[in-house]
Design a protein around this nucleic acid. Structure first.
Lengths: 123, 123
DNA sequence: CGACATCTACGATACACATCGAACATGCAT
DNA sequence: ATGCATGTTCGATGTGTATCGTAGATGTCG
């Protein structure tokens, strides 16, 4: 019958979203990871996301990301399928997602760096 | 005894800085404001920054921003002159600062419905 | 020299929020 | 229907951190 409840959960208009709000949402490591995963996988259900927190916490983060405007979520049967609102975000904040998702990882070490040739005065 | 005190306070190599760390630093409204002000003014001392927190808090945020790699600070006499490490940041995270600083402010609110042109007689 | 400035360091406080477990709702199968 | 899965919501808890006031370090100036 109505296996087609493709209902979409409420989400904000991106025009009303401040850049600070987006930054705050992406500042959490788990949420950033979720956005990264979704950007690569396209879509995923809550339970499919490989993040090191419990299910209820993932749900909380997905809610935060959706209410912030970063994700859209569709109801599909018993599961919620989420994906990044990439095109809308690119229109609202040009270059933002690209610069974040394409950022190269940091070099592992801050090696014990000692500079010969003098005291680097600080104080 | 002139400007020999052009010493630069210690700052990280941007190669070692994760994008998540930068996002976390910029997630705070006051810090984002500071970066915005410095981007426009070029440089500023701690006391010149027009932000709604006390001096000691500004100092704390400047330290955070510097240790995160966003700012560099030079000692000039008794004052610390800070500025955004714009070029280095653009090299490490291309497009990031631009997309954040150029982001358009959000539209004030989403009136539930009510098409424009109505009688907004309030206020 | 002493008085005053800028700025940081330190301890204390308060609040936000990330996290969890348990309870509940819903859908799909058997 | 019962059972099992997926997700959400709720309350509680712990931690991180933004904020402040005060004290101290340092530099400038009269």
């Amino acid at each position: 019958m109505r296996t087609l409840d493709q209902a979409r959960l409420p989400q904000p208009d991106l025009a009303e979203v401040e850049i600070g709000t987006v930054l705050q949402a992406l500042a959490d490591p788990v949420r950033l990871q979720i956005v990264r995963l979704l950007s690569r996988q396209g879509t995923a259900a809550c339970g499919e996301l490989d993040v090191p927190v419990k299910r209820s916490t993932v749900s909380h983060h997905l809610r935060t990301l959706r209410e912030t405007g970063l994700l859209e979520t569709h109801l599909k049967g018993n599961t919620r399928v989420s994906k990044v609102r990439r095109e809308e975000l690119d229109r609202r904040f040009p270059g933002l997602l690209a610069s974040i998702l394409d950022a190269a990882p940091a070099v592992p070490a801050a090696p014990p760096e000692e500079e010969p040739g003098g005291a680097d005065g600080e104080r």
